[in-house]
């Protein structure tokens, strides 16, 4: 069985799915991501599906569960790189990818995760310093 590699970049885990996913591989991936979040203390997960030429209801459910599991473990998930034909098919299939944040590519996904990380920090700092909010992106 193929196993999907998980890379760590800063406090973000990058999961790049490059194989035609067998159901077993997808289930294994959920466990691997959960383990890596706990082991690394990552605050974000990016799942790159550029390599997937279809997303059916099983893979869609797998993506939703990874996002839900990550959230429980304190990490945000962004799915990036969906092909146009896959997006069109998903909508027609009726799959809403509930609870999943999406972005066009890895770079934008990283930005979403960075912003999510800054949000709560700004909230805690209520003595007036908004320097972080004004910082250029």
């Amino acid at each position: 069985m193929d196993r999907v590699p998980i890379l760590k970049i800063g406090d973000v885990l990058l999961v790049s799915i490059q194989v035609d996913l067998e159901d077993k591989t997808a289930i294994q991936l959920q466990e691997d991501v959960a383990d890596r979040i706990v082991a690394s203390g990552a605050h974000g997960v990016i799942i790159d599906i550029t390599g997937l030429d279809i997303v059916d209801s099983f893979v869609g459910r797998m993506l939703s569960s990874i996002a839900a599991i990550s959230r429980v473990l304190g990490a945000d998930t962004v799915v990036v790189g969906m092909r146009p034909a896959v997006a069109i098919t998903l909508v027609e299939l009726g799959l809403s990818l509930e609870g999943i944040q999406t972005a066009l590519n890895v770079e934008r996904g990283m930005r979403i995760l960075a912003e999510a990380r800054q949000g709560p920090r700004l909230h805690r700092d209520e003595r007036g310093s908004t320097a972080e909010a004004a910082a250029p992106r």
Partner: peptide, 27 residues
């Protein structure tokens, strides 16, 4: 999925139609 993709390419379905058919076949 791979077999249906092969047939869809042979029948010259558009990329979106290939994707729809392969997804349906997977389900």
């Amino acid at each position: 999925r791979q077999l249906v993709r092969k047939a869809a390419v042979a029948a010259k379905l558009s990329l979106v139609d290939q994707t729809k058919l392969v997804t349906a076949a997977s389900e």
